[in-house]
Each structure stands twice: as structure tokens, then as C-alpha cells.
Amino acid sequence: MQKNDQSNVEDRKASLKLFVVLHRALQSIEKQVFRDIKSHGLNLTEFAVLELLFNKGDQPIQMIGKKVLLASSSITYVVDKLEEKGLLKRKACPKDRRVTYAVLTNDGKDLMKDVFPKHEQALTEILGGLSVIEKQRMIEQLKILGLHAEHYS
């Protein structure tokens, strides 16, 4: 086998191994994150919407799906459920009647003031297998990998 062929075989094996390891690591991390979110009486989509509003402020309902990677039909359902729980409300845009904002209520703000720091701490513990420097390096590497994959055709 020539040097170039050997390199190609090693690259393929490494690529397969990387995919499997990334996938398993993500599954393990997600399992723990889901457990943490559930312990606060929320599901993942509810938490994602509340976290967006808590950290970014009022958002047009039509834009929330893009920001938390959910279908628009799912967002309407989640917003309805959070509104029923008294955690957010809808507010019409004064400049454009076609736009409706999702706004945290005081109860929603209070919940996130309590839950979000606990969630941050849980994430720190869940991802505690790496040092800060290792996390920063991994962030850089995964961004490069993600951008490359996004433009793959």
C-alpha cells in the first residue's frame, strides 16, 4: 500500500471514530442536561424558550423557532403552554400588527432567576471533565468542524 493510500485509510478510520465518539458524548451530555431541566418542572423546549427570553429579552414569536431550532408549529404550542403556566404572555407590536412578541411575566422572570444559575452550575459539573482551556480549544475545533460540515456538498 502506498503512503497516500495508507493516509486515506487512516483518515477514514479516524473520521468514523470521531463521529461515534462525538455522538456518544453528546448523547451522554444531553441525557444529563435533560434530567437537570426536568428537575425544574420544565421540558427542553419550554426551557429553551424561557432561556432565550430571559437572556435576550422580548422576542417576536415568529423568530423564536429559528433561534431555538424548533418548527413554527411547535413554538406556538410551547408558547401556549408557557402562557397557560403564567410564565410568559403575548404582546402585540405597536409598529406592526402582524408581529406578536413573547414576553416573560414576573413569574417567568422569577423562575428563571432561580433556575438559570442552577442550570449553569449543572452544566459546569456535567462538562467538568475538561479544564477551561480544554473547553475553549474544543469550542474552537468544533466551530471549525461545524462550519466545514455546513458547507460540505
Rank of each mutant, 00 (worst) to 15 (best):
D110H: 09
K113D: 12
K89Q: 14
V132S: 01
Q141I: 09
E46L: 13
V33N: 00
E120L: 11
D96N: 13
A14K: 09
I144P: 04
H148V: 07
R35S: 01
L44I: 07
D5P: 07
L82G: 13
Q27I: 04
E120N: 06
V33G: 02
E120V: 03
R90D: 08
H151P: 05
H148G: 06
T105L: 08
T45S: 10
H23G: 01
E51S: 12
I144F: 09
R97S: 11
F116S: 15
K67E: 10
F54Y: 15
H151T: 12
K3F: 11
E84Y: 10
Y101W: 10
D58S: 06
V115D: 05
K56A: 14
S39G: 13
L142C: 04
K135E: 02
H148W: 07
G86C: 09
R97D: 12
V49R: 08
I133E: 04
G86H: 12
T76F: 02
A71S: 02
K95Y: 07
E84L: 15
V99D: 06
K66T: 10
L16G: 00
F19D: 03
E10W: 02
L52G: 10
G57V: 02
S74R: 12
V103I: 15
V49L: 11
A149N: 11
L147Y: 03
L26G: 02
L130V: 13
D5W: 01
C93W: 11
L127A: 03
R24Q: 13
G57A: 03
K3V: 11
Q59I: 03
K17T: 04
S74N: 11
V115L: 01
D11V: 07
K3W: 08
S7D: 09
H148C: 06
L82P: 14
G108R: 14
R24K: 05
L16M: 00
I61V: 13
R137D: 12
S39Q: 06
Q2D: 03
D96Y: 08
N55R: 15
P117Y: 10
R12Y: 08
N8K: 15
L87Y: 06
F19Y: 06
L130Q: 10
V99Y: 08
L22N: 15
G128C: 00
L123I: 03
N8E: 15
V21H: 05
L53R: 08
L70M: 14
